[in-house]
Design a binder for these strands. Structure first.
Length: 710
DNA sequence: CCGTCTACGTA
DNA sequence: CGTACGTAGACGGA
């Protein structure tokens, strides 16, 4: 089936919203066909509910809807491309009672078959790839792209288009059904079934929505706006002091780079080429070139010029107007004015003084280069701050530099908090204070979810991000926000998949692995490890797990990587097995049967395997957060329903489940989540036929909002 | 207008 | 140190 809907456009931001949770949206039409057990298609049916050309009476529409509901109830399997969307509309507009239990989403099925290789998954692209029937839909596509809802598109075209989509979906479904029965792909059945179950879970939590306290959000926003204004005022003062009249846009990497490093790039294209700036076909950054310190310094000198403080003058060529009127060859003036070429239309020219502008810091290595100059991100700024700390006390620029670097670092963060988090939460929160973020099932290479409109999976951590205070319970009297996390899930799964006896031992004995790492890194005794050292060491516990080799690290850290694989011998052996397996078959498989294809993998001249890090990382990340956690999600929802809980599951963030807890239900919620999550091994066994050898532990916290949890 | 790049944040 | 994401503004070429 296929549902066409209206769409709302946010004029200010140009954002299109065809969500069923936008109260202004409506179902325009519903289109469907039946398919019998032999794969024979019934006739095309459709109902038009809301359209400018609509002639049917309410009674007639109601009668057609009855027909549709009858077919829906009779159906064994509900098939649609991006079925979550259609299910959500059915749920919001027709209530939950008639929703089909078994769903087949042709988009999700296609995604699983793609085996982690990025593939265009739209209905159109899928149909083209599979050679199934396809209606030329340029007209509809263009209208839709420009934001015209289906209610405005000529009705005969809507019906023709939608019927063609239904037919195409049906044909793709039949092909997929066959493909999932072939020896090559039958192993994917448990995973695609879990994905369909997860689709229902996602539709459910999206429908529940997240309750937002808009007053709390407003006051957090005000605090950030104030903080930003203060930082900006100070940074602009400093900017004027060190740059003279040269205008600096603190949101511009190029401007800020000039200010910090006192250098302007002469030829940006050349600069990009020299420092190999860019991304590869997988969207990852290219590697910076190797250079000695001397080479680097020389290169920077050659391709940059020292930034000087400037004094602004009225442009003499245009008298400060910015525009000039040229005259034609015959002496008559052109009709339109041109931008003054001397000042590029600004009316002002900036004349260099002799004084060097900026903070006069130097980049260290090609790693510090960026497209428009040199990096100005948090870690680079931190490095620069450490340098400035060593400047002699008498240096008059020391204080200013410290203040600027610290302020800029915070400004970058506060900008993100305001521009991305606050603004987007505000934008997507409906008038009933519910925010229905989207969870996308067919985006990532590993099978994880992604989240958008807004992304609710990248909020700064609990306890330090006041925006989280606005996530509150929908039940005013005694409702709570509760979050259950799998602890150390990926480390456990790495032990699980490699069956490394030392990892298994460490986990069973509750060993503090990060402290052990800190010991090795800092070459000290266990008793000497401080809290900070342990925190810093965490990254090094995980690096080798995911294929990190410490190539760019100092010698003693490289030693650590060696020692790590001496301790976890089996893990290292497993990594090798994965790689030789990929070289042989092109495939990595997890215990769920999910597969990842590496068609281009080969051994390079220096003995390494292409995509080595991805090959060892995908199974761990995927089995943990794309198989185990979704399974726990599906179980949790099933338990909640079976027990008739009023509490709502509202969110999952890769290894956690978040619940809006109904008053007095917290104990039951905790019990059921523990059963769903810690007990997930029993369903891993029934669904995938796999015995987990390690226990899965969870931690549960709760509080009056999503920030203040304990 | 659209793709690329940098920056922020998460597991 | 690695892998996987989404969003926004700046920039530069069409």
């Amino acid at each position: 089936m296929d549902i066409e809907t209206t769409v709302q456009i946010d004029q200010e931001r140009g954002i299109k919203d065809n969500s069923p949770y936008n109260p202004l949206n409506q179902i325009v039409s519903v289109h469907w066909r039946s398919i019998d057990a032999h794969g024979t298609l019934g006739p095309a049916s459709s109902i038009v509910i809301f359209h400018k050309e609509l002639a049917a009476t309410q009674e007639e529409i109601a009668a057609s809807l009855q027909e549709f509901v009858k077919d829906l109830r009779a159906a064994k399997t509900f098939v649609a491309h991006n079925a979550k969307f259609d299910l959500a509309y059915l749920h919001e507009f027709m209530g939950a009672s008639d929703l089909p239990r078994q769903v087949w989403c042709t988009m999700v099925a296609e995604y699983v078959l793609a085996r982690g290789v990025r593939t265009a998954l739209s209905l159109e692209q899928t149909a083209m790839r599979r050679g199934t029937s396809l209606k030329k839909t340029d007209l509809v596509n263009n209208l839709f792209k420009s934001g015209v809802g289906f209610e405005e598109i000529p009705l005969d075209i809507v019906v023709e288009y939608a019927d063609a989509d239904v037919l195409s979906t049906a044909q793709i479904f039949l092909q997929q059904l066959e493909e999932y029965q072939t020896p090559l792909s039958e192993g994917l059945v448990p995973v695609v079934q879990l994905s369909f179950d997860m689709l229902g879970f996602l539709q459910h939590i999206e429908s529940n929505g997240i309750h937002i306290d808009l007053n709390a959000l407003e006051s957090v926003e005000q605090e950030y706006i104030e903080e930003k204004a203060q930082i900006l005022a100070r940074l602009e003062d400093i900017s004027r002091a060190v740059m003279g009249d040269t205008p600096i846009n603190l949101n511009s990497g190029a401007d800020v780079s000039t200010l910090i490093y006192s250098r302007k790039i002469v030829d940006k294209a050349l600069h990009k080429e020299i420092f190999n700036i860019g991304t590869d076909s997988r969207g990852k950054s290219l590697r910076p070139p190797r250079m000695t310190e001397r080479e680097f310094t020389r290169t920077v000198r050659q391709n940059t010029e020292i930034a000087r403080k400037t004094v602004a003058h009225n442009c003499a060529a245009c008298n400060g107007f910015g525009k000039i009127r040229k005259t034609k060859k015959d002496g008559t003036p052109f009709k339109k004015e041109n931008n003054c070429p001397k000042c590029a239309g600004a009316g002002i020219i900036f004349v260099d003084t002799r004084e060097v502008a900026g903070l006069r810091l130097s980049p260290d290595s090609p790693e510090d280069a960026s497209a428009h100059g040199f990096k100005t991100d948090k870690s680079t700024l931190k490095k620069l701050q450490a340098k400035v700390a060593h400047w002699e006390e008498g240096n008059p620029r020391k204080l200013i530099a410290q203040e600027f670097l610290e302020g800029l670092s915070r400004l970058n963060a506060v900008n993100t908090y305001l521009d991305s988090f606050v603004r987007n939460i505000k934008h997507w929160t409906r008038t009933n204070s519910l925010l229905h973020a989207q969870f996308n099932q067919t985006v990532t290479r590993t099978g994880r979810l992604s989240s958008s409109n807004p992304n609710f999976q990248n909020q700064p951590k609990s306890g330090k991000f006041p925006v989280r205070k606005c996530v509150t319970s929908r039940w005013a009297n005694g409702g709570k926000i509760l979050e259950a996390d799998f602890s150390g899930l990926e480390f456990r799964v790495a032990g699980e998949l490699s069956r490394d006896p030392q990892i298994i031992d460490d986990i069973n004995n509750g060993k503090d692995v990060h402290s052990q790492t800190a010991c090795i890194i800092n070459q000290c005794a266990l008793s000497e490890v401080t809290k900070d050292m342990r925190q810093a060491a965490k990254a090094y516990t995980f690096a080798p797990l995911y294929g990190g080799m410490g190539a760019a690290e100092p010698p003693h850290v490289q030693e650590y990587f060696k020692e790590y694989f001496n301790i976890y011998v089996r893990l290292g052996a497993w990594h090798k097995e994965l790689m030789t397996g990929v070289l042989r078959t092109g495939i990595v498989r997890t215990p769920s049967g999910r597969e990842f294809s590496f068609p281009d993998a080969q051994r390079t001249a220096n003995g390494r395997v292409t995509n080595a890090t991805a090959i060892v990382n995908y199974p761990v990340q995927s089995f943990a957060t794309a198989d185990i956690v979704p399974l726990a999600c599906v179980r949790a929802l099933r338990f909640f329903m079976d027990e008739g809980l009023q509490s709502r599951i509202i969110l999952t963030v890769h290894d956690s489940i978040v619940v809006d807890c109904y008053p007095e239900e917290e104990d039951r919620v905790r019990t059921l989540l523990t059963k769903a999550m810690s007990g997930v091994d029993e369903e891993v066994k029934t669904r995938f036929g796999y015995d987990l050898c390690l226990p899965l532990a969870i931690e549960i916290v709760s509080g009056i909002n999503w920030m203040e949890t304990a």
